[in-house]
C-alpha cells in the first residue's frame, strides 16, 4: 500500500480545505477511500450514526498536482481508512498560505496520514510543518460496508432554495420543536413545517426549479412517475440532522437537489463542478 500526493497551487489547497471543513461539520469520524482517480469521504449507513449517511466524491486531478497510489493489491487497487475529520481540518489550518503541501500514508507507531506543509519564509531556509494524523486502515473483508448508496426510489425531486435561507429558518424551528416535516410536490412547491402543542409554523417556497431528469433516466414504473404532480411527498426528520447538513455547506454548491421518499427518507444531492455530495436523513416516526 502506498499513497502520496503533492499540491503547489494555493487555490487547490483552499478548495480542499473547504471540502474537508464541510465534511467535518457533517460528521466526526469518516472513512476515506482512495482510488487511482477519486477520493471519497464516506459515512456508512449504520445505526450508530442515527441512520444518517453521507457519500462525497472528489476527482483527485482537480485538487492535486501529483498523485500516486497503490492499493492493497493490483486487482483491488484501493485503500480504505478511517480518520477523524477534525484532525484533517486542524492540519489544513497551517496550510492557508502554504507554498506546497504533501499528503502521504506513513507507518509510524500506527499508520498515519502525514501532512507536510511548506510555508513561505523570508530567508533561504525552509519552514516545514508536519502533522501526523493517525488512521486505521480498513481490511479488504470490510469494504463491502462502504459501497455507494443506491439512489433511493424517491417520489418527488426538487431543487432547494438558497441553503442560507433554509438554515435561518431551520435554526428558528429548532427552538420550537425537535422535528421538522419537509414536503414538496412536482410543481415546484416546498414546505418546511413544525408542529407543537403551542405553535404551528410552516414556510412555503414556490416556483422552485425541478431537476432536469431525462425521461429515460427514470423507469416508467418509478414512484416519481406514478406520484400525482400536485401531491406533496413528505418526511419528518430531526431538525438537528437537517441543520448539520445545512451548516456544513461551505462549498457553494451549484445546485442542491432534494429527493423525498414519502414518509421514509430525504436524500440531498449536492452538485458542484468537481465534487458531488450525497446526504441521507431517515424519517423519524411520529
Amino acid at each position: 500500500m502506498r499513497f502520496r500526493t503533492k499540491v503547489f497551487n494555493i487555490d487547490c489547497i483552499h478548495h480542499f480545505t473547504n471540502v474537508v471543513n464541510t465534511i467535518n461539520k457533517l460528521l466526526k469520524k469518516c472513512t476515506l477511500r482512495l482510488t487511482p482517480d477519486k477520493l471519497y469521504f464516506i459515512l456508512p449507513d449504520q445505526v450508530s450514526n442515527g441512520g444518517v449517511s453521507m457519500w462525497c466524491e472528489l476527482k483527485q486531478a482537480n485538487f492535486f498536482d501529483e498523485y500516486q497510489m497503490d492499493g492493497v493489491s493490483s486487482e483491488h487497487n484501493e485503500i480504505y481508512m478511517e480518520i477523524i475529520a477534525e484532525n484533517i481540518v486542524r492540519a489544513l489550518k497551517s496550510a492557508h498560505n502554504a507554498k506546497s503541501m504533501k499528503i502521504k500514508l506513513t507507518k509510524k507507531q500506527t499508520p498515519c496520514l502525514t501532512v507536510e506543509i511548506e510555508l513561505p519564509s523570508i530567508n533561504s531556509s525552509s519552514r516545514l510543518v508536519t502533522h501526523d494524523i493517525p488512521v486505521s486502515v480498513i481490511p479488504r473483508r470490510l469494504w463491502d460496508e462502504y459501497q455507494e448508496p443506491t439512489m433511493p426510489e424517491f417520489h418527488v425531486s426538487i431543487c432547494m432554495p438558497p441553503l442560507k435561507t433554509l438554515k435561518n429558518i431551520a435554526e428558528r424551528m429548532k427552538n420550537l420543536s425537535t422535528y421538522l416535516t419537509l414536503s414538496a410536490n412536482q410543481e415546484g412547491d416546498m414546505v418546511m413545517k413544525v408542529e407543537t402543542e403551542l405553535v404551528t409554523v410552516a414556510t412555503r417556497f414556490q416556483n422552485l426549479e425541478l431537476p432536469p431528469f431525462k425521461d429515460d433516466d427514470i423507469a416508467s414504473q418509478a414512484p416519481s412517475k406514478l406520484w400525482p404532480p400536485t401531491e406533496m411527498a413528505s418526511a419528518r426528520v430531526d431538525i438537528r440532522k437537517f441543520l448539520q447538513f445545512l451548516a456544513g455547506q461551505q462549498i457553494n454548491p451549484f445546485k442542491v437537489i432534494c429527493n423525498i421518499v414519502n414518509q421514509s427518507a430525504i436524500h440531498f444531492f449536492l452538485i458542484h463542478d468537481d465534487i458531488s455530495l450525497q446526504y441521507f436523513i431517515p424519517a423519524a416516526s411520529v
Partner: peptide, 11 residues
C-alpha cells in the same frame, strides 16, 4: 421575504 412565505399559528 423574497417570495418565501411563512405561516405561523400560535395558540
Amino acid at each position: 421575504e423574497d417570495g418565501a412565505v411563512t405561516g405561523c399559528s400560535i395558540k
